[in-house]
């Protein structure tokens, strides 16, 4: 089927099988390999993208479901102020080890920070609880989201 959607701010039209997994569409057909597949069954969160600003697991989403929607992947974060702040915080806080879960973590954190930049530590943990990390024990990941939240809050108050 032909589908049209917005991908990281640009309109995209393509023809694909309606049941093609969005993760395959993004990684294999469009070359956006930033999101990862860790399980294929919706348990690990490594394939998280935003659909109309909310988190979605791209391994459980089919091509037909994104027709007409606004999709943001990790590659789109560099065009968003909050996204840049978030990535920098992950780098500075030592939140990255193997890094395979990190794009998904950032995608899961972004909607929280956009709505509640001052989210409490436990709320951050709740927001990230659908994303598995096997390397870090989450301490520095939560530190990074906290740091990003503080910086985003300062920017917002400054406006």
């Amino acid at each position: 089927m032909d589908i049209k959607f917005t991908l990281n701010g640009n309109s995209q039209s393509l023809s694909t099988e309606p049941d093609r997994r969005v993760i395959d569409l993004l990684r294999e057909d469009l070359g956006l390999t930033g999101i990862k597949e860790g399980c294929g069954t919706g348990e690990c969160g490594a394939c998280t993208v935003l659909m109309d600003g909310e988190t979605r697991l791209s391994c459980l989403t089919l091509a037909a479901q994104i027709d007409g929607r606004d999709i943001t992947t990790i590659e789109g974060l560099q065009d968003m102020e909050e996204g840049i702040i978030l990535q920098k915080a992950f780098e500075e806080q030592g939140a990255v080890q193997c890094g395979y879960c990190i794009p998904g973590m950032e995608m899961a954190a972004l909607p929280l920070l956009t709505l509640h930049p001052n989210a409490a530590r436990n709320d951050i943990k709740i927001a990230l609880s659908g994303n598995l990390c096997r390397c870090t024990g989450y301490v520095k990941i939560v530190d990074a989201v906290e740091q990003a939240g503080r910086e985003i809050a300062v920017k917002k108050e400054g406006l």
Binding site: T33, T73, I74, F90, E91, V96, G99, I102
Partner: peptide
């Protein structure tokens, strides 16, 4: 900061 962190955090690491 780890030398690989920026690329990994941006989804650029292959």
């Amino acid at each position: 900061p780890r030398g690989d962190a920026a690329d990994k955090a941006a989804g650029r690491e292959k």
